[in-house]
Design a protein around this nucleic acid. Sequence first.
DNA 1: GCCAGTCTTGATCGAACGGTCAAGGGGCGG
DNA 2: CCGCCCCTTGACCGTTCGATCAAGACTGGC
Lengths: 217, 217
Amino acid sequence: MDEAAGTMDMRGAETSRSRAGQENVERILDRALEIFATFGFRGTRIDQIASAAGLSKTNLLYYFRRKEDLYLAVLQRTLDMWLEPLQSLDAGGDPERAIEAYIRQKLSASRDAPAASRLFALEVIQGAPILGPVLETQLADLVDRKATTIQSWIDAGKIVAVSPRHLIYTIWSVTQHYADFAAQIRAIEGRDLSDPVFFEDTCRTVTQLVLRGILPR
Amino acid sequence: MDEAAGTMDMRGAETSRSRAGQENVERILDRALEIFATFGFRGTRIDQIASAAGLSKTNLLYYFRRKEDLYLAVLQRTLDMWLEPLQSLDAGGDPERAIEAYIRQKLSASRDAPAASRLFALEVIQGAPILGPVLETQLADLVDRKATTIQSWIDAGKIVAVSPRHLIYTIWSVTQHYADFAAQIRAIEGRDLSDPVFFEDTCRTVTQLVLRGILPR
DNA sequence: GCCAGTCTTGATCGAACGGTCAAGGGGCGG
DNA sequence: CCGCCCCTTGACCGTTCGATCAAGACTGGC
């Protein structure tokens, strides 16, 4: 598992599957995401996922022959969803609207798919043993492109001079924080993003903070 | 280990110890922090820590009879250091200086003790099974007090109206991001906070962003 | 130089875990 | 109603892991 798995594609034995089979696979992936996201790869037991999905360990291993296969499948399924929001950060419109929309999108993801956020957090905290190559290529390129977009806003005087990459990191960290550290926020506030009031409160405050930080006065 | 361990004190058998003994304990704790911080509690093997510390598994178990004892000891040793920076956020001086100092302090911690940051991140991501009670009492109180401080700045017109707690979360998330997600940043930037230039760059940008966000124009 | 208390080691145990195997159940098309 | 293929099961295997135990080595104080 310390191996980087190279290409990160895993078209693993796409055998034909009955409806029951497909439903099982999806249920396994759902539960596996949840459990991998809280215990990490090494920390989760395969039969833990199995019983959470309502089947035996052997039965699970019928669908995913190795633990690593399951982990990769989960990671794969989450990856695209994770990279997508940044794609839509477009140079076209005005930065205010674009960034406001991006923050809302990221916060929505933190509310609706907190496990996915935590899974990536775990991966990266562990040094990104699997996702490393993807980050160095796909993500790095994407960030470079978006940094250019932000730089163009700066050059046009639409926002103040600020390191584009740090701006991206800031938005990432703040928005994901509400998913990854939900337990901490729950301990302090007694609520999390699933509370509509708290969600709007968070969205407004973060947006205001960032926009005031970069908009010319 | 799913137990909350109640009081979080662990004056475990403070037996008398020779110099060699104390050195071993410290080396064990150092290595354990590093390894727990990347693999989590369930994910780390006890002999992994032992060999990293240069002794046998049995020998390590002489100092910490159970794996959980070691984990608690590591957590305990890191906790105070982690809560401390926020303490110094004082209402006395002007908010600009106070927050600037706080951000620098947190970023310094992320640079000098990234493993400690990651360990807490892992704990919280897992739902804070151990630290939960501490967060609900100690941390919640501390945050409440500091939120009052920030509110007093708002009332005095020194900073704009902003949810004090969200402001704290923002600063936490951004500064800790550079420790917890160092692998991701390294994949994109090719460097991290240990690079003095990058450190100052980060410090300046984050400070500027936050201060512009809350200072009256 | 002896002794008590501290440290270190290797052998070993039981449980947990990832994974295999062989056998049987069940549904769907012909 | 038959046979094929997908699914499900339980028994089992080898390894790993946390933890124990008994026995010996080292060290500092007297």
